[in-house]
């Protein structure tokens, strides 16, 4: 009888741990792309080392990235981006923390694509602003992935673009992010 009690307790403990483990997902290989379309040129940059954590029980998502991890086709552009516009030596990180309502099917990891309204705070260049955006989370064969696309107004984040290059850099930059999550214990 005593051993049965212990067995039940163990099952309950392991069960609880397993359920908890399935709620949180993480990736360190998140891909963030930004794209600027201006009269004189199109500029894009990629960051493949973004961190993101999703908590499906609380409906929370966090994204963390280092500005210097953005890569440009032209080395000179990358330097100007870091030194003149983003001042990444001073503001090395950009973060997003947001909340969303979790559909029951998503929480139980049923296959499908779930469109979500995410509300949160975006910090770029040391400036934090509230943002609202559509995002999607996809469950396929027990794997969770996410994607989001939104516009960032360069001015909102006190990023100064010198007049000389005003025709080279867009006022609104398009940000696209994709994440392939793994269970996070």
């Amino acid at each position: 009888m005593k051993s049965l009690k212990i067995l039940i307790t163990l099952i309950l403990i392991f069960g609880a741990v397993a359920v908890q483990a399935q709620d949180r997902y993480l990736t360190r290989k998140g891909h963030i792309k930004f794209f600027s379309h201006a009269p004189l040129e199109d500029i894009e940059a990629h960051n493949n080392k973004a961190l993101s954590i999703v908590d499906l029980s609380k409906g929370q998502i966090a994204v963390d990235m280092l500005i210097k991890a953005f890569e440009f086709e032209k080395k000179l552009m990358q330097e100007h981006f870091n030194e003149n516009y983003m001042e990444s030596g001073k503001y090395p990180k950009s973060t997003f923390k947001g909340n969303f309502e979790v559909p029951a099917n998503l929480q139980s990891m049923k296959d499908g694509t779930y469109e979500l309204d995410v509300k949160g705070d975006l910090t770029i260049h040391g400036v934090t602003k509230p943002v609202e955006t559509k995002a999607s989370l996809t469950v396929a064969g027990g794997k969770l992935s996410g994607s989001v696309k939104f516009q960032v107004k360069v001015k909102d984040y006190k990023i100064k673009i010198p007049k000389v290059v005003v025709r080279n850099i867009a006022e609104d930059v398009e940000v696209t992010a994709t994440f392939d999550y793994e269970p996070y214990k």
């Binding site: 360190r28 080392k49 990235m65 280092l66 210097k68 991890a69 990444s88 990180k93």
Partner: peptide, 14 residues
């Protein structure tokens, strides 16, 4: 390489 920061204990060099 250049150390550019740390994200949840992941140290990144560029």
């Amino acid at each position: 390489g250049e150390y550019i920061g740390v994200l949840l204990m992941e140290i990144q060099l560029n």
